[in-house]
Design a protein around this nucleic acid. Structure first.
Lengths: 108, 108
DNA sequence: TGAAGTACCTTGACAGGCGAGGTACTCTGG
DNA sequence: CCAGAGTACCTCGCCTGTCAAGGTACTTCA
């Protein structure tokens, strides 16, 4: 919910990349997966999600292609690039580090 | 360093409040304490720190008073208010929750 | 005397999140 | 048969928080 959205700020790219490492996916599905995994506690706002896609694609961390669904709404699929994988691995380390630092700052 | 600063974005207020729960303090000292506690890995930028003070005081979470040092540079001390304590307690819960959520989103 | 340390502060630019609004197609119940 | 809910995408413009850059003023010490 809104409680956590401030805290997840900064993890958007990382979370999207994590989903794309699991498998190619598209905006709507990624958001549903996130909602599932968090038992409905979290989900990106659409504007946030799509602006993240733009950012990540411009940075070369993901690429997109249109799904070939004849029926139903068109889907733009995203796939992670090697640079994306590398960036993600690095971001995982950063996250471990950040947790450590924040936790240490929240104690007397 | 700059690596972690993106991830600490959003924890600024919480970290400052944690310091003020330990004891009344002033900007410069808070930053030094943070540098100490993180072995020099982290420190607020001054502009960030002082804008956080303004925000927190406006929100009624901290109050300030001038230190009575006759000698040396003047110091503006900050103290946490009851609302600040309450906000901090809440933010701790949010942080536990955020860690759980983020970790769960970073796995297959 | 001048550099380094202590201590505060402001301005303006920039980036990311997101509310609000929009398009277009499909499926299902009444 | 058609209205509403669901799927699926997208843009514009505001708001908030960070921070580079710049400034002030005092003290200590080599």
């Amino acid at each position: 919910m809104s409680l956590t959205s401030d805290l997840i700020r900064g993890h958007t790219d990382q979370i999207i990349l994590a989903r794309l490492i699991a498998q190619d996916s598209y905006g709507y599905e990624i958001n549903k997966t996130i909602a599932d995994k968090t038992d409905g506690d979290y989900e990106f706002k659409e504007a946030t999600l799509y602006s993240a896609f733009r950012r990540l694609e411009q940075a070369g961390l993901i690429v997109s292609y249109w799904g070939d669904s004849e029926q139903g709404a068109r889907r733009r699929y995203y796939a992670i690039t090697p640079q994306g994988v590398q960036y993600y691995a690095h971001s995982l380390e950063d996250w471990q580090e950040a947790k450590r630092i924040i936790d240490s700052l929240l104690t007397k």
